[in-house]
Amino acid sequence: MKLSARELNRALLARQFLLERTEKTPLQVVEHLVGMQSQVPLSPHVGLWSRVSGFQPADLSQTLESRETVRIVLMRGTIHLVSARDALLLRPLMKPVLDRTNFTGHNGKQIEGIDVDELAQRGRELLEEEPRTREDLGRLLKERWPGHQATALAYAVQLLVPLVQIPPRGVWGVAQGRGAHATLNTWLGAESLPEPSITEVVSRYLRAFGPASVQDVQTWSGLTRLSEVVERLPLRRFSDENGRTLFDHEDAPRPDEDLPALPRFLPEFDNIALSHANRTRIISPGFNGSSTRGSFTVDGFISGTWKMEKNTLLVAPYQRLLKRDGADVEAEGRRLLEFAAPGADHTVVFEQT
């Protein structure tokens, strides 16, 4: 069965709770999404506001402070907000991704000649003494390896040793400053589940991002050689408009392509735009997934960027919006401003296209 780009779009939006906000808890949504990109510390709050009915910042911040969620380097070698269980599940599975990042290219040259087992052990010892920022960790590591850059040493340890970036980093309403790190074992009392399963992870990816190809799963995770994993799951096969084979759970939602989709505001680097090799199901012409601004959707497709300056929301469409769409975007933008800065005077400004 062939699926159009619009059918794939509606399936993705439904699974991401962007067709209709969900009543699930933030923790349930974070788990369903298999984590949320969090290199911008507060971005998951905006992502959840667009997905969870009645979401308030404290709803997520409390899970960080109670250690139900953590911020940790995982898929694609980037920081994700995940549940505590998913941190233990995903971290050992993503080790090949992190090793590839650490030992190749510029990073590999920076730690060339170092016994990496010794580096990992020394880093672990320093962070088990007390949480430290990457800057402080690098300074202490440089005492042992004076011929290497402190930042490179600390970054290598972050990839070698399971580390979490601890609160108040990522807590809404608190000055972020430089994030302190602790070992995953110190923070959660363990570093992995007894038998972490890549099959479970791929199955859950499809629940949140499918229908999808093997290449899509690999793009999302950074892992390779996942064909065998996908093939052994009991999945239904589809194809896209270009004939690519897509896999999906039989009972997963695949709404009609004409189902209405209201505008939604997404944070910087939201996974919805980074988790497929073929992104035509979510992008409009002109979209750059690496944009440091947030993005917004019109009719389900990313159609521009936004940023907030105090109480003003600057909205930059990729092309001129229809009057009705512009009004809907402005209305949703005002709701975003009320969420981020309640009680203030709010302004939505459309930048020239």
Results as ranks from 00 to 15, higher is better:
V201G: 03
A150T: 09
E128I: 05
G105K: 00
E143R: 15
Y155C: 03
I114D: 04
G147K: 10
L206D: 06
N107T: 12
V116L: 11
L90Y: 12
D99C: 05
A182Q: 11
T151Y: 13
T101P: 04
P162I: 01
V157T: 13
P196N: 00
A182E: 06
N107Y: 12
G179Y: 02
L126F: 01
W145A: 09
I166Y: 09
E129V: 07
L184F: 01
A156L: 06
I111L: 08
R100H: 09
I114M: 02
L89R: 09
G147C: 04
G170P: 07
G173F: 00
P196C: 06
G210T: 05
N102A: 12
A87T: 10
L137H: 14
P146L: 07
R100M: 04
I166P: 03
V201D: 02
A120G: 09
E135K: 12
S192L: 13
E125W: 08
H181N: 12
L163I: 15
K142N: 02
Q215K: 15
R132M: 12
A182K: 00
T151M: 08
E195Y: 01
A180T: 11
P131K: 03
A154Q: 07
R204K: 15
F209M: 09
R124Q: 14
V202C: 10
L119P: 05
P194L: 08
I114C: 00
W145S: 07
Q215V: 13
K142L: 06
L163T: 14
E135M: 15
R144G: 04
Q165T: 14
P168T: 00
R132G: 09
T104S: 11
A182S: 11
D117L: 10
E143V: 13
A190C: 05
R134P: 00
E129D: 11
S197Q: 13
D136M: 13
Q110S: 14
Y205S: 02
L184A: 04
E118W: 03
K95Q: 13
V217E: 06
G189T: 07
W187M: 10
Q176F: 05
G170A: 01
T183L: 09
Q110I: 02
L126P: 09
S192W: 12
V217R: 06
P167L: 05
A208I: 00
G108S: 01
S213T: 11
P92W: 07
Q121A: 14
